Amino acid sequence: SKIRITWGDKTWEWDGDDEEVWKRILEWARNLGDEELWRHVKEWVDK
């Protein structure tokens, strides 16, 4: 399956939905430097 994140007018996609993928997404969000996006992603990961 895919994980799709839409933020503003951008959309990103990742293949898979296991823990490793979420770790990569969390790292990606942090590297993007958008605090609010990172917080949202972290909330999803922690669920």
Rank of each mutant, 00 (worst) to 15 (best):
E35F: 03
E43Y: 07
W7N: 01
R24H: 12
L26T: 10
E36Q: 09
V41R: 00
L37P: 01
D18G: 14
E43L: 04
V45D: 04
R39W: 09
N31D: 12
E43M: 04
K10L: 11
K10A: 11
W7A: 02
N31L: 11
L32M: 15
L26G: 05
I3R: 01
D46V: 03
T6V: 13
K2G: 10
D34N: 12
R30D: 09
R24C: 05
R4I: 14
I5L: 13
T11Q: 08
L26A: 07
L26S: 06
E35T: 07
K42P: 01
I3C: 02
H40M: 14
K2P: 12
D9C: 08
D34P: 05
G16M: 10
W22K: 09
A29Y: 02
E43P: 01
D18Q: 08
L37W: 06
G8Y: 08
W14K: 00
E27L: 11
A29V: 07
A29N: 00
E35H: 07
K2D: 07
W44I: 15
E27K: 06
K10N: 12
K10E: 14
T11L: 06
H40Q: 14
W28D: 01
R4C: 11
W28K: 01
E19S: 13
D18P: 07
I25M: 04
V41F: 03
G16F: 10
L32I: 12
T6Y: 09
E36T: 07
T6N: 08
W14L: 03
T6G: 01
D18H: 10
D17K: 10
K2W: 09
W44C: 03
K23L: 08
D15H: 11
D18S: 13
T11E: 06
E19L: 08
D18I: 09
G8M: 10
E20C: 09
I25F: 03
L37M: 10
E20G: 14
K2L: 13
W14S: 01
E43S: 03
D18W: 07
G16A: 15
E20D: 14
S1T: 13
K42V: 15
V45I: 08
E27N: 09
K42S: 15
L26E: 13
T6H: 09
G33T: 05
G16E: 09
I5M: 02
I25K: 00
D15A: 08
D46P: 04
D17R: 09
R39P: 03
K47I: 14
L37T: 02
G33Q: 08
N31Y: 09
D46N: 03
T6M: 08
D34W: 08
W12Q: 06
W7Q: 02
E20R: 12
D46R: 02
W14P: 00
G16H: 13
D46Q: 04
T11K: 06
W12M: 11
T6A: 04
N31C: 06
I25G: 01
R4N: 10
W38T: 12
K47V: 14
R4H: 12
I25W: 01
G33N: 09
D34L: 09
G16L: 11
W7C: 02
E27Q: 14
E43G: 02
W14Q: 00
K42A: 14
L37A: 04
E19H: 13
L26M: 10
G33V: 05
R24T: 10
K2R: 09
R4Y: 13
R39M: 13
D18R: 08
D34K: 02
D17F: 06
D9S: 08
D46L: 03
N31H: 09
T6F: 07
W28G: 00
R39Q: 15
E36C: 03
E20L: 13
I25Q: 00
E19W: 07
E20Q: 14
D17H: 10
N31G: 14
V45C: 06
W38L: 15
I25E: 00
W14R: 00
A29R: 00
V41M: 04
D17I: 05
D18A: 08
E20V: 10
A29P: 00
G8S: 06
K2S: 15
W44G: 01
W7P: 00
K10Q: 13
L26C: 06
W22C: 03
D9G: 12
L37N: 01
G8A: 09
D15R: 04
L32W: 13
R24G: 07
E35Q: 08
R4W: 12
T6P: 02
W44D: 01
D9Q: 09
N31V: 09
K10G: 05
L37H: 01
E13F: 07
K47N: 14
K47E: 13
I25C: 00
G8E: 08
E36F: 04
R24N: 14
R4D: 05
A29M: 03
D15F: 09
W28H: 03
W22Q: 06
W7L: 05
R39A: 13
D34R: 02
K47T: 14
K10Y: 10
K23R: 10
D9E: 11
H40D: 13
V41G: 00
V21K: 02
W38E: 13
W12P: 00
R4E: 13
T6D: 06
N31I: 06
